[in-house]
Amino acid sequence: MILACGEETAEIRIEGESAVVGQRRVQFGVSRTGERLEAIRIGPNAFPVRVAREGDRILVWCAGQVLEFRRAGGRPARRSDSAGGLSAPMPGRVRKVLAAPGDRVARGDAVLILEAMKMEHAIRAPRDGTVTKIFPREGDLVEAGAVLADIQ
């Protein structure tokens, strides 16, 4: 199978206690408690690991690092903020809408105030332009990554 982790991609083949990771052949052993994976042993070294599934991804904790794996094969999802959109950096509630369609904004101007965890975060225009659309209304709950406004 082909897996991606951050910027890295590798083809992994596992046959019994032998794995091919990219170009490397690795002999390994597995320590489990019941169903739970506890460690991967490679040679004299044991690497503690924990694994959890979240949606289509596998999360791996390995010796102090948290890594996120997905099956590779496609390109990464489009990012809305590269195309004139302004997106929510985190889930939260829209506390205040400070601009209206037609308003000219300068880079750094606050367009909305998003509230999360009792903190207010100003969502600022990434560049000079004209607001063409504001998507949420005051009081709306928005998900992380939701497009909040279009600036042309």
Partner: peptide
């Protein structure tokens, strides 16, 4: 990414 993590992910 350590080999152990690739292997753990592939097993999962």
């Amino acid at each position: 990414t350590p080999d152990a993590a690739w292997i753990a992910a592939a097993l999962a």
